[in-house]
């Protein structure tokens, strides 16, 4: 094979770009997070204050609440997406008229800008002008008010995320299902296995890598959701839908308390990386060892 120097040469531009725009900003955030710095306060200078910001963050009830809300949001959204996505992918495996057409329609939400998704869902759900509360009221007598009900706002953000990102799950799972070999399924049917047994013992283990990878990418993106929720609820009512990204954007930057905001950012990044790393190493890496 060619010398590894050539390999590094091919990687160099990628590493350079990501270093300049990914790592350096991170180092900067890390550095600022150990300072007290509010450029618009009485003392606009940066004052090194050891880990006082972090000391404050772990007691910040608002931040912890937003962390909890994020976990709930990500959990419900990702689980729903994977379940619906799997069933839709399975349904696409059959042959039926207009399959390509329906698949195209189903992928459309993917290309809608998050900020547009947020605005259109806001338009649909705002009480008095939105169609959804109106219909729910007419048909079922339900009162959906995302302006006052925390539960309603939370549900709408989850539904919006499901609408927006289920197509991605469906697509990756179709890709996984298409590549499955037919033999084990035929064998299982000959042996008289029911659909449920086939799912648990054959389909699931075989698509598990794809499933984990899909969950991984969705988890990553759901944790960093900002635009949509910012547009839809602005984090309200109260702080019901103020997920960490929104929290940083809404609470920290307008108050220009940069030192403290940086500490929050570092913790959010830390948690994201740890969760993703555990998923990556714990679920994907062992597979490599055993099967390789």
């Amino acid at each position: 094979m060619q010398s590894n120097k050539l390999g590094w040469l091919f990687l160099a531009p990628t590493i350079l770009v990501l270093f300049l725009f990914g790592v350096l900003p991170f180092i900067y955030v890390l550095w600022v997070s150990f300072h007290q710095w509010n450029p618009f306060a009485a003392n606009p200078n940066m004052i090194f204050n050891w880990a006082d910001n972090y000391r404050a963050v772990v007691f910040d009830a608002q931040f912890l609440a937003s962390l909890g809300a994020t976990v709930a949001f990500v959990f419900f959204a990702v689980v729903t997406e994977v379940i619906i996505g799997y069933f839709l992918a399975q349904a696409f495996m059959g042959d039926f008229p207009g399959k390509a057409f329906f698949r195209t329609i189903h992928t459309l939400p993917l290309i809608v800008a998050p900020i547009i998704v947020g605005s259109v869902w806001k338009l649909m759900t705002t009480p008095s002008i939105g169609i959804i509360p109106h219909l729910l009221d007419n048909w079922f007598g339900l009162n959906l008010n995302i302006g006052t009900s925390a539960l309603a706002a939370f549900t709408v953000t989850v539904v919006m995320d499901v609408w927006h990102w289920t197509p991605l799950v469906t697509l990756t799972l179709i890709a996984a299902l298409v590549s499955l070999p037919a033999d084990p399924f035929e064998q299982a049917q000959i042996d008289g296995a029911g659909p449920r047994q086939i799912f648990w013992h054959i389909t699931l283990p075989m698509i598990a890598p794809a499933l984990v990878a899909t969950v991984f990418i969705r988890l990553m993106d759901a944790l960093r959701t900002v635009d949509e929720v910012l547009m839809l609820t602005g984090g309200g009512p109260g702080s019901a839908t103020r997920y960490v990204g929104v929290h940083i954007f809404k609470e920290v930057f307008p108050r220009t308390n940069y030192g403290y905001g940086s500490a929050i950012s570092v913790i959010v990044l830390y948690l994201t990386i740890v969760v993703c790393w555990m998923l990556y190493t714990g679920l994907l890496a062992p597979r490599k060892g055993k099967e390789g």
Binding site: L24, P25, F26, V29, V244, F249, F253, Y258
Partner: peptide
């Protein structure tokens, strides 16, 4: 999270 990197 993109919000983290806005300031730096």
């Amino acid at each position: 999270p993109p919000a983290v990197f806005l300031l730096p």
